[in-house]
Simulated scan of single mutants.
Amino acid sequence: MPETPDPPPTPLLSARGLRFARNELPVFGPVDFDVAAGEALLVQGDNGAGKTTLLRVLAGLLHADGGELRLQGQPAAPALRARLVAYLGHLAAQKADLGALENLEFLCGLHGKRPGMSLEDAMATVGLAGYEDALARQLSAGQRKRLSLARLWLSPAPLWLLDEPYANLDLDGIELVNRMVQAHLREGGAALVTTHGAYAAPPVRTRLLTLERPS
């Protein structure tokens, strides 16, 4: 008797018919997509196509107007999002008058931390060793972006939502993002990455989702 093949693994993220409108005007959707462990989904589209809005909906910062969103096969309730999703947006989400290390301590207190990793190690990973006591407002835009990347690296969440992660970074910073995404996927994580197309996609197993402005 032939063996029954194993069912495919449940995607980390699954969206069906997801859509969002602002002032009754469609911004994106409906869209369908899955993101599995070990892969990246590259979200492309012109300005105004809804890339940032999509990630904000996935992160729970905006409420979708329709469709279904599941995380690990379960409805994407706020508590589940908080545990499974890490969001890197355009804003640094740092307190200007706290030191770099203090900012990480504060954010890890809110969102948790990967076991076995120190905050100092994360800062060294992103090239900020020696800046632990520097106030966030004293850091350059690139350094603040690296501090946000340190927080991402510390996150225990398996699903990364990265909105233009290469912005404000030099070539070394771009390579840093690529290495981080590669390592995260090797460990069974997944990532959604928005891009205007100015930079190549991370050198990982990648699928493409193209958003178009609603007609």
Rank of each mutant, 00 (worst) to 15 (best):
A191E: 01
Y131G: 09
L154V: 02
L169K: 13
L185W: 03
R186H: 09
F106R: 00
N178P: 09
D170V: 12
P158R: 01
A191N: 05
T125A: 15
G197P: 06
P115A: 12
G142I: 03
L154W: 02
Q143I: 05
F106E: 02
S118F: 00
E132M: 07
R186A: 10
P115I: 01
M180A: 09
A157N: 01
L110T: 01
H184Y: 06
V193T: 02
D133K: 15
A167E: 15
G197D: 10
E164L: 08
E164H: 10
G142T: 06
R137N: 06
A191T: 04
A124D: 14
M117T: 13
L176H: 07
T125S: 08
A150L: 02
A183Q: 15
Y199L: 13
H111W: 08
P115N: 04
D163E: 09
L107F: 00
G197C: 10
P165E: 10
E102Y: 08
L110P: 02
M117N: 03
R179V: 06
L161A: 01
D133E: 15
S148N: 11
K113V: 03
T194Y: 07
D163H: 06
Q138K: 15
D121I: 04
L169H: 09
E187Y: 05
L149A: 08
K113E: 05
R137E: 13
F106S: 02
G142Q: 06
L101K: 02
K145F: 11
N103A: 11
N103S: 12
V193W: 00
A134L: 12
L147Q: 04
L161V: 02
L101W: 04
M117Q: 15
L162D: 03
G189P: 08
G130T: 08
P156T: 05
V193Q: 01
L149T: 06
A190G: 03
Y131C: 15
R186D: 05
G142P: 03
P165T: 07
Y199P: 05
C108N: 02
A150D: 02
A129W: 13
S140A: 07
L176F: 10
S155G: 05
R179C: 09
W153T: 00
R146G: 07
L159P: 11
N178M: 08
E105M: 10
A141H: 12
L119G: 03
G189C: 06
G127T: 05
A150N: 01
I174F: 02
E175K: 14
E120D: 15
R179E: 15
D170A: 14
H196Q: 13
G116I: 03
I174L: 13
E164Q: 14
L149N: 06
F106W: 11
L135D: 06
L149Q: 05
